[in-house]
Simulated scan of single mutants.
Amino acid sequence: MTSIGITPEERAELGKALTDALNPLAAAIRSRQSGLSTARMWEADPVEVTLSVLAAWKVVDAEVKQLTARAAATAGSYGANYEQMGAVWGITRQGARKKWPGAVPRPAAAKAGAALELFGGTAELVQDPSSGGWAWAGEGADGTRGAAEDGTWYAAKEEAAAHAGAFLREHAATLS
């Protein structure tokens, strides 16, 4: 799933609905600050009125951020990953992980690794618990040891396995 846009008509409807929902909050904030009743809010200094509207949007912004984090955590609990969340939000996988840390449950240690035996050699696939990325280390049938390049974490277990498999194929025992 990718980021979803809305039509101009939907945007206009959303703007109206949000403004309608915001007005009572802005009026309450202005009333507390000015001592005027909410019915007389618009009679106050225009700068003060517009600042109360801005203050109300700040409250809404904080609430939206909390609701967004809750939605991300819910998606993660159902199996969504950071790549999917980032695609929907229009940011990278890393950006999604930074925006909603902990939204995707970390894999259990028992699931964090796997062994690969190919071409007479073996490789261990390991998952980084903090990033969820995958790396590998192994020994070819010819005794050569190898591993993913320093700092390289692959997005998927299958990608790390493909790189490990290519290494094991290159270092297969030669038949005499």
Rank of each mutant, 00 (worst) to 15 (best):
A155N: 06
P46G: 09
P107Y: 04
G120E: 04
W57N: 09
K111D: 15
F119Q: 03
V53T: 00
A75R: 10
G140D: 05
K111I: 01
R30D: 05
V64I: 15
G90Q: 04
T50Q: 08
I91W: 03
L36N: 07
E124M: 11
G133Y: 05
S37V: 05
A147D: 02
G113H: 13
W134C: 09
A75M: 15
G90D: 06
L125P: 11
R40G: 05
P107R: 12
A141Q: 01
E48Q: 08
A147G: 13
K99H: 05
L67Q: 11
T92V: 08
S34D: 07
G146T: 00
A96R: 00
A69C: 08
A26G: 13
P105A: 09
A108T: 08
A123R: 03
V88E: 11
D128W: 07
A55T: 07
A87V: 02
A115P: 00
E63R: 13
S31H: 00
S37H: 11
D128Q: 00
G35S: 10
Q66D: 13
P107V: 08
A110M: 08
M85N: 05
V104C: 09
K58N: 11
E83G: 15
V126W: 00
A115M: 12
K58W: 07
E124K: 15
L125I: 15
R145K: 12
P46K: 09
P105M: 05
Q66M: 08
G102N: 02
R32Q: 14
G113K: 13
S34W: 05
D61R: 07
D45N: 15
K111H: 06
E124W: 12
A137V: 06
G120F: 07
R32Y: 01
A103I: 07
A96G: 04
Y154I: 02
A108D: 12
D142I: 02
T74Y: 02
R70N: 13
T74R: 01
A96H: 04
A80E: 01
I29R: 15
A80T: 02
L118K: 10
T38H: 00
A55D: 14
A110N: 10
P101C: 09
D61M: 00
A39L: 15
E149I: 02
T38M: 13
W42C: 04
E63Q: 14
W89N: 12
A80P: 07
I29M: 11
A55V: 00
D142N: 12
S34E: 04
T152R: 13
G133S: 08
G102W: 01
N81H: 06
V49Y: 06
R40V: 13
S131C: 09
Q66T: 10
E139G: 03
G86D: 09
S52K: 06
Y78Q: 12
L118T: 01
A62E: 13
F119P: 00
E83C: 02
L118S: 03
